[in-house]
Structures are given as structure tokens and as C-alpha cells.
Amino acid sequence: MLFYLITLNLARFLSEEVPTLKEGEQNAESVSAVEAWNHSDFLCRNYVLNGLADALYNVFCEKKTAKELWESLDRKYKTEDAGAKKFLVGRFLDFKMQDSKPVISQVQELQLILHDIHAEGMTLSESFQVAAIIEKMPPAWKDFKNYLKHKRKEMNVEELIVRLRIEEDNRNSERRLFTPNVAKANVVEHGDKYNAKRKPRSSGKDSKLGAKKGTFKKKFVGKCYNCDGIGHKASDCKKPKRAREANIVDAISHDVSNINLCAVVSEVNLLGSISQGFRL
């Protein structure tokens, strides 16, 4: 706003007092000079009001002259500047680097805070800035921080940033080399565990029965040798053991009684004569 008023040749009205006519100066020339000054002061005052936000316009529109308006704004923003200085110092002291972010980007954020501190008139030596950056490095850089602390040669901020950039590039390259092998090993390990725990699938009613019993068991469809029943094995038969042995003996005697002995003898004789005929 000050630059804009200078280009309009109105900046002098920010510091000049309002002219007044004395009793002996009631001539036309003096009156026209006062009117011209009031007109220029009116323009200067309204240029400043036009540059304010709507909320501030309602506060400062009651000021009668450009000088009074400018001094009110100056007091307001000087108070804010004093608070800004304290705020910047607090930001600088509370700033801490984290392992989850790149170090170079965090150093650039700290440089912006230092730049704002210098802009507010608070000067810090370059050696102090280098020491502050080193001290605020993240915990994972503890060894490199101790290495920089023990260096006797003085460094400026640019040299420190170059060293940090080289160190960060080396760490990133090492991380890329070791990460794929670990990932493959994890994939193989998880795959083996998955295959070991994997169970065959079943469908339909069998899967439902298997889910209820815990394990699937195929139903027996053959004949029981104990009771000639169908649908269970002899080992699962509910009849006692003696009854099963008696049934076996009865089955054998029943089969023997049903054999036709005459037919067996005639068949044996026939086979014997055929074998003798082949020998002759």
C-alpha cells in the first residue's frame, strides 16, 4: 500500500498534519491550498480503506484523516509483528525431525523458519544454524549426527546440506538392495504356511456332514460278513463275537451241503481223461 501511495504522490499525507488557517490568512490563495490538501488527504485515506478487508473496513472507517488511519494500522500490525517474532522462535525451538520423512525436506522446512527469523530482524550466525540443524536430526541418524559433531572443520549450511543429501541417497540405495530379498523370503514363508494349512475342499451333502463331524467319512455300501446286512462292515457289526463265529460255521456247512458231489467227481474224471489224451 505504501508503494502504491508513493506512485500516486500521496504518501506525504500519511505523516503531515492537517493545515489550519490563521486569522490573518483568510485570503483566497490560502483557502484553496487548504481545500487542495483536504482533497488529496481524502483520496489517500480512501485508497487505504479500499485496500482493507471488509471486516477491517468497518473498524477503521471512522478515522477522519489519512495520518490517523495509518497510525492506527501501524500500531495494529506492529503488535502482530511482535507476536510473530515470538511465534517464530517457538516454532524454531519446537521443530524436531522425524524418521518417517526425508531429512532434506525437513531441513528445508527448518531453513524457511530461519529465513523468517532473519526477516524479523533477529540475526543468527551461520555456525549456530549448522549446529541447530545437526542437533535436530532424527533418531535414526544418531551415528551420523555424532560423526558431524566430532568434525573439527567448520561447515556452512550449504556444505552440511550436501553431506546430508549424499548420506540420504546412500541409505536409500542400501534400503532398495535389501528390501526385495526380505520380501521374497516372506512370500515363500507365507506360501509354505498356507499350503501346509490348506485342506481339500468338499461339496454337497458330504461337505455339510464333514463340517458337522469335523472330518468327512465315506459311507460303506458293501455287505457285512457277520450278519449279511448291508450298509456296515463286520468290524462295525453290533452282534457279539460268538454269534459271528457261529454264523461263519453255519455258512460253511450250508455251502458244503449245497455242493453236488456226483458232478464234482464226473468233472474230475473228465479233466483227467482230457489230460491223458494230450499226453498221448
Rank of each mutant, 00 (worst) to 15 (best):
V130E: 00
L8I: 03
R242N: 00
R175C: 08
G210V: 03
H150T: 10
D228H: 14
Y147M: 06
F178D: 04
I117V: 14
T179F: 07
K197H: 13
D54F: 08
S203C: 13
S105H: 08
K145H: 04
G272C: 06
V182A: 14
K208M: 13
V89Q: 04
K153V: 07
G229E: 08
V187H: 06
K153D: 09
L73A: 01
P138M: 02
G191M: 14
K85I: 05
L160V: 11
L270R: 15
K67L: 08
R12I: 08
T215I: 13
F128K: 06
A140T: 11
A53R: 13
A234F: 01
K208G: 08
E25D: 15
V264D: 10
I166M: 13
D206E: 13
E29W: 03
D74V: 01
E126L: 01
D206R: 04
D116T: 02
R279A: 08
A183I: 12
A140D: 06
L114P: 04
T79L: 15
R244G: 10
C61E: 14
K239F: 13
V182C: 03
D206I: 07
N46K: 09
L114I: 09
M1Q: 05
W37N: 10
D169N: 06
R45Y: 01
M1F: 07
M155V: 02
K86S: 08
N269Q: 13
S266D: 07
M97G: 04
F95D: 01
R175N: 15
F220I: 11
D250W: 07
A33D: 10
K64C: 02
A53L: 08
F216R: 14
E267I: 04
F60Y: 15
A132Q: 10
K145T: 14
N172P: 02
V18S: 02
L56D: 15
A263M: 10
E154S: 14
Q108E: 10
L69D: 00
I113N: 04
A119C: 04
L8E: 12
A211N: 14
Q129S: 11
G191D: 09
C224N: 09
F220V: 12
S72T: 04
S15P: 00
K78S: 11
P138A: 01
S275Y: 10
C237K: 05
L148H: 05
N156D: 15
K199Y: 01
R75E: 13
E189D: 12
Q106E: 11
Q111I: 03
F144C: 05
F3Y: 12
V157T: 14
A11N: 12
H190P: 02
N260Y: 00
L280N: 09
N156F: 03
R12C: 03
E16R: 10
N58W: 01
L43F: 13
V162E: 15
H39Y: 12
V188A: 14
A185G: 08
R176L: 07
A55N: 12
L280Y: 07
D99W: 02
F13V: 07
G210L: 01
C44F: 05
A36C: 05
Q111W: 05
S275E: 12
M155S: 05
E120P: 01
D94W: 02
N46F: 12
V18G: 00
V268Q: 00
I134D: 00
L177H: 07
E109M: 13
G83T: 03
T123R: 11
K78V: 03
G229I: 05
C237F: 02
K85Q: 05
F220C: 10
V130Y: 02
L69K: 06
N247Q: 11
N269W: 03
K213R: 11
W37R: 08
G277S: 12
V182T: 11
